[in-house]
Design a binder for these strands. Structure first.
Lengths: 219, 219
DNA sequence: ACACCTATCTATAAACG
DNA sequence: TCGTTTATAGATAGGTG
């Protein structure tokens, strides 16, 4: 748009992002107002800043009232029945907004941003909170590692066991077949039957490969 | 905005209004997308054309849910004014509630609670986040320590300087008094005056104690 | 954080197909 | 009702105070 063209992706610098947010937000709201005016269309726009602050605009009259009520707290006692309802809703709305702002600030501070307003005591408290959280997360992670590993080992053991059983079944079958063949079949038929039902031991078949692995190969 | 400047008021010609609506709507949505991308902010935009058609955009999944709600109830019945307003109000409300729930969960997880639903990858991500945050906080704390210490050292130096000046003033005064006394006072008066205005050097007065400390004792 | 500046980029009014 | 063009108004990135 101006001195230089910029890429449309998240602006990394916090200050630059805030400046841009402020400018573009105003631009966007102006455009929204123009569209609703020029084309007589109803329109609502709700924007949260990265700090959790809420901005909104709505062309419809009732929402404008609500919006105004939010900006400058009360002076609407003079209105009749609907105003009471609006006030109730509005207070909930304001409470929610405040809660969001508070939680957003707390989250940002836990991520190490927006720390300039804190004194040493508050910073130490935050550090302690982070260390406690980190300890819990690392514990949970390690526990999960152990669980996943033992679960995989169990599965591996089961597979190996199955493998053994299958191997024995295959050996039994091939013995039976060999026995049957030895009792009366021709040598040409022997070759055919053996290659399809009992491949040579030195060469891994697809089946024995899958069953023989201690861990599944999709890990 | 171009071949000619236009007034921002309702366009009377229906066709011109529709053309402008279509162009400006697209422009507005593009700007909204850019803002949410550049500044990483959550954002919802809902536009009704004068023919009642609904267009909307929302940057986050939470908003998309609300958007869908609006879309569905819009297609169900043609909608008259009050229902539009109600929907928009509900949207804002729902949006706020969901946002709070999400942020609350994130906070609890950063504090090491409610981790049972996370897999190893998510836990590692969380651990990284906490370590980054912790690093920033520790840096900020150390910086603040250094600042506070140098500020105190500066204050201490200033106090020592003031102390020196005051000491010189006291010495000058006592010299003058001694001089005056030597010029005509009796020896009994000399003792009285000296003990009140100029105590012996080897014994710390309250004043010199306060001024002589490198750091204030309220630390 | 805010207002202002200005060079540059973008959006778009009007026109045409 | 569209898309395309084009000249121009508007928006804004980066800078300064």
């Amino acid at each position: 748009m101006t001195r230089r063209k910029i890429q449309i992706k998240k602006i990394e610098s916090t200050t630059a992002r805030q400046v841009t947010f402020s400018k573009r937000r105003r631009g966007l709201f102006k455009k929204a107002l123009e569209l609703s005016t020029l084309c007589d269309s109803e329109l609502a726009l709700i924007v949260f800043s990265s700090t959790g602050k809420l901005f909104d605009y709505a062309s419809s009259s009732v929402l404008q009232v609500i919006e105004r009520q939010n900006l400058q707290s009360n002076t609407l006692d003079k209105m009749d029945q609907p105003s009471l309802e609006l006030q109730l809703e509005n207070s909930t709305y304001t409470l929610l907004s405040n809660d969001i702002m508070e939680k957003t600030r707390e989250l940002r501070q836990m991520k190490g941003e927006e720390l300039q307003g804190l004194n040493i005591e508050e910073l130490q408290k935050l550090e302690q909170l982070l260390q406690d959280g980190l300890r819990c997360v690392v514990n949970a992670k390690d526990k999960r590692f152990v669980e996943d590993i033992s679960s995989l080992e169990r599965k591996g053991a089961e597979l190996m066991e199955d493998n053994q059983i299958l191997k024995r079944q295959v050996e039994n079958q091939s013995n039976n077949i060999t026995h049957v063949i030895e009792q009366g079949q021709s040598s040409e038929s022997l070759t055919n039957i053996c290659s399809s039902a009992d491949p040579p031991q030195g060469q891994d078949s697809d089946t024995s490969l899958k069953l023989g692995l201690p861990f599944p190969n999709w890990l």
